[in-house]
């Protein structure tokens, strides 16, 4: 079985900017995959290259085994892209736009599927509304609907929840999760790391056009993040050097200490007590992707 996405040795330069500096990546069919990185890391360029919107200087990209240049028709039929920008055609209403998009992909009489998408994305009542009349969140969902009209096996969402309120975001993820459970491969870029952590089985992190981390979400959390003990102290104290190494951050009397397993908590508290620290408030934190992200970006 060919991977959903295969990217090999892809480079792309925009004048003096090396947007992609040799990217190799495979995403298996059925995966929920996260593509993370700071602004300008090359995520959108990589997605654009996959979708045929940009042409790489070197390397190859395949979608479901189809080369995006040589076999572009099959590759594009297999791919649905939700663009980052809130773009729409102001001449048409939602249903017209979805019918037109279906036609672009060679599908006529697609109304049954269009109705189903509109229902799942809570857009049924807006089907006859002009795109200009929709709120930002609705426009975003209409973009998702456009990417799905041809039932692509691979769906790429480029920051789909930017500007979407919490309730709509949850509804959107519920639908995307269902698509993934139905067998669609999902590739997601987002700046909301908690979303990526809860949704993605595997994650790649890009920096300056290179992949600097690629692993399952669980492995990344294990390798790069630790449990945390968040403390508020009554007064400043000087810690012994053994404990000092555990301090992740310090903001006045608000301290965060890291540890790998819960056996260490007792030692930490004992050490704090012997140093004369008086604890006013305390909370335990789980390892999270934000720590991983910061750690990986600082390492590279």
């Amino acid at each position: 079985m060919s991977p959903a996405i295969r990217i090999a040795g892809v480079t792309k330069r925009f004048r003096s900017l090396q947007a992609l500096a040799g990217v190799d990546l495979e995403v298996a069919q059925g995966e929920f995959f996260g593509l993370l990185g700071p602004n300008g890391a090359g995520k959108t360029t990589l997605i654009s290259s996959l979708a045929g919107l940009a042409r790489p200087d070197s390397g190859t990209l395949e979608v479901m085994g189809h080369d995006v240049v040589r076999d572009y028709r099959a590759a594009r039929l297999a791919l649905g892209v939700v663009p980052q920008e809130l773009v729409f055609d102001p001449f048409f209403n939602v249903r017209e736009m979805l019918r037109i998009q279906s036609g672009y992909f060679g599908i006529r009489n697609n109304d049954d599927w269009i109705d189903e998408i509109l229902h799942h994305l809570d857009l049924t009542e807006k089907a006859s509304s002009n795109m200009r009349m929709l709120s930002g969140g609705m426009k975003r969902r209409a973009l998702v609907a456009q990417a799905l009209v041809h039932r692509p096996p691979v769906i790429v969402l480029d920051e789909p929840t930017a500007g979407v309120d919490v309730e709509l975001r949850h509804g959107l993820w519920q639908f995307i999760r269902k698509l993934n459970q139905d067998g669609h491969t999902i590739v997601l870029t987002t700046h909301y790391l908690e979303e990526a952590e809860s949704l993605c089985g595997r994650i790649a992190m890009l920096k300056a056009g290179r992949i600097v981390a690629l692993d399952t979400t669980a492995n990344l959390l294990q390798r790069f993040a630790s449990h945390t003990l968040q403390l508020r102290l009554a007064q400043p104290v000087v810690l012994p050097s053994v404990l000092e190494a555990c301090v992740l951050s310090r903001d006045g009397l608000q301290w965060t200490l890291g540890f790998d397993n819960f056996d260490e908590v007792g030692q930490l508290l004992a050490g704090l007590k012997s140093a004369g620290a008086e604890i006013v408030d305390m909370a335990l934190g789980k390892p999270d992707l934000e720590q991983v992200f910061v750690g990986v970006m600082n390492q590279n």
Binding site: R76, P83, F88, F105
Partner: peptide, 17 residues
């Protein structure tokens, strides 16, 4: 218009030669 508003992507993404 399509270029400036960005909706040209809807024509560029599908398999249209």
């Amino acid at each position: 218009q399509s270029k400036i508003t960005g909706n040209i992507v809807f024509v560029l993404l599908p398999p249209i030669s």
